[in-house]
Structure formats: structure tokens, C-alpha cells
Design a protein around this nucleic acid. Structure first.
Length: 497
RNA sequence: GCUCCGGUGGUGUAGCCCGGCCAAUCAUACGGGACUCUCGAUCCCGUGACCCGGGUUCAAAUCCCGGCCGGAGCACCA
């Protein structure tokens, strides 16, 4: 009891130190948001957004909103199932949103603000083609449509909404400054016509706001005080500030982080993953070789490990290239103590022990602290891992862990010779203590690897069946999560070494 | 090209705003030792960094200037 008490206290203390302070943050008044476009399941990258925002909200007793920025049914088309994947994975990560907002369901609200801007003469309908406008923008010259009178602009707007224009014919631009030193800021698009069904709202609208517009309005309406997002959105702020100025709103405090590159995955965008799944390179969104949260869940990672790993990346604006080894280390700390140990023999080689006095039942620790045991049958026909067998030379003395000590008698004929039940000093420490499995205890086992199409086949002891669903350690192999098991076969997913 | 941003041990990070307590934090990695019938875990001990050059100052990782290197944006994508 006392232990738990102090343990919790310690945890809370370290939690406060996990991230640097947020500027202008007042306890109880912080409102933050995580705004994904659900065009696939959350990946490690999106999880960083959830976790960091959530962590700050917890630090300041604030409020977290998940907002789906799903206003492009074509180029970044949302995936209907993905909405819930975000909610599920967020929950799994210990991220509890106080509110969930779907931008596509609030489009009429954005229309109202657009209308106001049009009335104020701060936005205008533009009939330039993309290419034409680019010329004006690069030259820093106003386009001919910029000074459309408000009444006329509103008329065009109404016609846009009622479907009198085709896709590509006209857009609404927000007036900024055509001479702004950064061309990226000059009169940006707020609304465009997209003649495509939206997975969530169907064909209810043909005029969609861009992210910059929708997000600007929502952040104000939702009372967001602090925004933390990727640095690819840095220009967004500069664009959106014009709207905030026109309406007299105050822009939230922002912080931007750099790109994360995981050594083991390289750069993998959601759309690229989707393509490769379609090509059959990955089995699905939860393929263990993928950096999706669903894959990590399948592999048996603890949410806490993922959180800590993500938090350890900090919120700096420089790019980070980090190895998954850090995540593995976090996870191992959490999993090691409770994981059952089993013998998994991969690339199995069948060998015979000559001179075994008797078939012996041996009791082996199931938990590393010796609190539980499992039973194995020590018989003369056993399986050894191919890797081990290759390595041995004739006359080597090896220890079959917790069973007996043998000598390699005939490598070709796959014969061992019984020497002793006890450990002998000739066994080289560490190196020649190996795991084994008798035929009567073995069931077929396959382990799905963390690289595309990587698999290990072999046999595992039957005892492991009782740990279906759990993360276990296959001794001298790796931690794995057993995802399926019956009396004859078992399938596991590689977690980490 | 134009605009903006960043550069702390092998990797990631804290500190930088408000110069001294920083011979620089924490984690991971690596090396050594102890323990262990797993090449795992645990416990000790250790290695290792302020991009470069100027300037300001009694004092700079922290402020200023220049250079070099890296990144982001410049879409009717998010």
C-alpha cells in the first residue's frame, strides 16, 4: 500500500518534467487540439500529436479536443473506418479527448464566416486558373478579381453554393498582401469547389473550405489557447493571422516540431502505405512491419512505453532521426518482469541423445523471478534451433538448459551423447547453454517479423498456449505476442529483442 | 530562387527567452565488473557533447554579427 502510494507520487513528479513548460499557459485554462485528417490509421507520427497535446493538457488541467480536419474529399480523401481508428487508438494511448469535432459536419459555419469576410471586402471570388494566379502571385501583383465589389462577390458566392459553377472555375481567396515578402502568404484560397462525395457527409456540399480556413475558424470557435503541430504548418499561422486580424481575434500560442524519422522505417507516408498495402507488400494496416499504432498494439507494446518514447522526442523544431531501440528499451522495462518464458525452436533440427538414462520431467521457471514454473519432458529425441546446431562442433560440451549436459558426438548423424544431469564446468559460460524441445511437448509455431514478409517457423512448447494474447519471451529469441493458439499450432508476432 | 526556422555526447533530450550555481540534465547506446543454467533482466563503475569564427561582458551553451551545415513552406493537400 505504502509502496503504491510513493510510486504514484514519483510518477506524477516525473510526469511534470517530461515536457518543457508551455509559454503563457495557466493551469485550468489551457485548451488544445489534435487535428488529424483520417485518411488512414494513426501512425507513430500522428500518435506524437495526440500524446504531446494530451500530456500538456494533463500538465495544466486543460481540455483536449480531437478535431477531424476532413475537408478534402478528393486529394486527401478520408477513410470512413479511420475516424474510429483514431478514437480507439487515442483511447488506447491513454488520450482522453473532452470533445470530438468533425469539420465536415460544420461546413455551414465556415460559410457564414466566409460571407462576413466577403461583406467586409476581405475576401473575393477569383476566376483565375491556378497557373494564372501563380503569375500574379510571383510578380506581387493583384489579380483582376481582387477588387470585385462586395455585392457582386456575394452574388458569385451564392451561385457557387447553389452549384452554378464547375470545379476549378472559381475559388474564394482571402486578401492578405500581394507584396508580402513571402509569396506563400499572398492571397490564399479559402474555398474551392470539389465535385466528389464525402465519406461522411455524402454529396451535401460542393464548396469545401481549405484546411487553412477551416482550421482558423475552428481554433477560434473552440477556444484553443495553444497549438502544437508539425513545422510543415508554420506558414498556416502566417496566413491565418490575417483572418484573426480582420475579426479582431487573438491567435493561439503556437509551437511547431520537426519531422521524425525512425531509422527502422524511413519515411513512410500514409498514402504510400496505402499503395503498398494495395500492391500486397503489406498484409494490412496492422502488418507488424508498419509504424501504425495498430501494428504496435498487435505486437504487444504497452501504451505507456509508446507515450514515453514519443515524449522523449521533445517539441523542438529541428528534425529528429531516432531508433526504435529507445522504444524497445522502454517497453522491455515494462514487460520483462511479467512475461512468461518459453522455448521456441526456430529452423528446427531433430537430434537424438544417446545414452539418456531415463525420460525426465523437468521443472523450469515460467517467470524470471521464479514465482511460477512450467514442466518440460526431457526425452532422447529433441529439437534444437538450426542456428545453434550450425555453430556446434564435434566434441563440444553443451548444456540443454535445465535438462542435462551432453556432448556433440556426430554432427552429420545428428547425435548427442549424454554426459550428466548436472551442469559441467566444460560448458562455456553463456555461449553453450541452449534451449531445446522434445517432440511430445512441441507444437508448430510461426512468428511474424517486424520487416515486410519476415517470418520464423519452428516449434514452441505447448505450455505457451495458456498465454494466448499475452506478450511472452521466447528465450534466446525475443519478446513476442501470442496472437493465436490452439492445441496444435501457435502464431506469434515479434515484439522486440 | 524567394520566405522562415534550426544546429548540445553515437542517438534523442534538458538548459538558451531572464548570461554566472553548466568542468552541462536525463534516457538510450557503448565499454568494464558483479549476478544469472537465456546472447535477456538486474546491480555497480566508466566513455562521451555546447557547428565554426569574431564581438559584447569581470563572466556566454545562453546575447550580437558573419560563415558553414541541415530542415520546412512557396498547391483549388492536409
Amino acid at each position: 500500500m505504502e509502496f503504491a502510494e510513493s510510486d504514484r507520487k514519483e510518477k506524477e513528479e516525473t510526469r511534470d518534467k517530461k515536457l518543457p513548460e508551455l509559454p503563457k499557459a495557466e493551469k485550468g485554462k489551457v485548451v488544445m487540439r489534435f487535428a488529424p485528417n483520417p485518411n488512414g490509421p494513426p501512425t507513430l507520427g500522428s500518435a506524437r500529436g495526440m500524446v504531446v497535446n494530451d500530456e500538456y493538457v494533463k500538465m495544466y488541467d486543460g481540455k483536449l479536443i480531437i478535431r477531424f480536419d476532413d475537408t478534402d474529399p478528393r486529394t486527401k480523401r478520408p477513410l470512413l473506418e479511420a475516424y474510429n481508428w483514431y478514437i480507439e487508438d487515442a483511447e488506447w494511448l491513454g488520450v482522453k479527448p473532452h470533445e470530438v469535432v468533425y469539420a465536415s459536419e460544420r461546413i455551414p459555419i465556415y460559410y457564414e464566416y466566409c460571407k462576413k469576410l466577403l461583406e467586409m471586402g476581405k475576401a473575393y471570388p477569383c476566376f483565375c486558373s491556378k497557373e494564372e494566379f501563380k503569375k500574379y502571385r510571383d510578380a506581387g501583383v493583384e489579380c483582376p478579381h481582387r477588387n470585385t465589389p462586395a455585392e457582386e462577390a456575394l452574388e458569385v458566392w451564392e451561385k457557387m453554393l447553389s452549384g452554378e459553377y464547375k470545379e476549378g472555375e472559381v475559388v474564394i481567396r482571402v486578401k492578405t498582401d500581394m507584396k508580402h515578402k513571402d509569396p506563400a502568404i499572398r492571397d490564399w484560397v479559402a474555398f474551392r469547389i470539389i465535385e466528389a462525395d464525402h465519406p461522411l457527409v455524402g454529396d451535401a456540399y460542393i464548396v469545401y473550405p481549405t484546411l487553412d480556413f477551416e482550421s482558423a475558424i475552428e481554433d477560434h470557435l473552440l477556444g484553443i489557447t495553444h497549438i502544437i503541430r508539425g513545422k510543415d504548418l508554420i506558414d498556416s499561422e502566417r496566413r491565418q493571422r490575417y483572418i484573426y486580424d480582420y475579426f479582431g481575434w487573438e491567435y493561439p500560442v503556437t509551437k511547431h516540431w520537426g519531422r521524425v524519422k525512425i531509422h527502422e522505417f524511413g519515411k513512410l507516408s500514409t498514402s504510400e502505405i496505402r499503395k503498398r498495402i494495395e500492391k500486397g507488400e503489406f498484409e494490412g494496416w496492422d502488418d507488424p512491419a508498419l509504424p501504425t499504432i495498430r501494428a504496435f498494439r498487435r505486437r504487444g507494446f504497452k501504451a505507456e512505453a509508446i507515450r514515453d518514447f514519443l515524449l522523449s522526442l521533445g517539441v523542438g523544431e529541428n528534425d529528429v532521426a531516432v531508433s526504435l531501440k529507445n522504444l524497445y528499451a522502454e517497453n522491455r522495462k515494462l514487460v520483462d518482469r511479467e512475461a512468461s518464458r518459453y522455448f521456441f525452436v526456430w529452423d528446427a533440427v531433430s537430434v537424438e541423445i544417446e545414452g539418456l538414462p531415463e525420460v525426465k520431467k523437468v521443472s523450469v521457471p515460467r517467470k524470471p523471478d521464479g514465482s511460477e514454473f512450467r514442466e518440460l519432458t526431457g526425452s532422447s529425441d529433441i529439437l534444437l534451433s538450426g542456428d545453434d546446431w550450425e555453430r556446434f562442433e564435434e566434441e563440444d560440451v553443451i548444456r540443454l538448459k535445465d535438462f542435462c549436459t551432453v556432448r556433440v558426438k556426430d554432427k552429420e548423424g545428428k547425435k548427442l551423447e549424454f554426459l550428466d544431469w548436472e551442469m559441467l564446468p566444460e560448458v562455456k559460460k553463456g555461449r553453450n547453454i541452449v534451449h531445446w524441445l522434445s517432440w511430445e511437448d512441441a507444437i508448430v509455431c510461426v512468428v511474424l517479423g517486424d520487416k515486410p514478409r519476415l517470418k520464423w517457423g519452428g516449434f514452441v512448447e505447448k505450455n505457451a498456449v495458456s498465454d494466448a494474447g499475452n506478450v511472452v519471451q521466447f528465450e534466446r529469441f525475443a519478446f513476442c505476442r501470442i496472437e493465436y493458439a490452439d492445441e496444435e499450432r501457435l502464431r506469434a508476432v515479434y515484439t522486440h529483442p
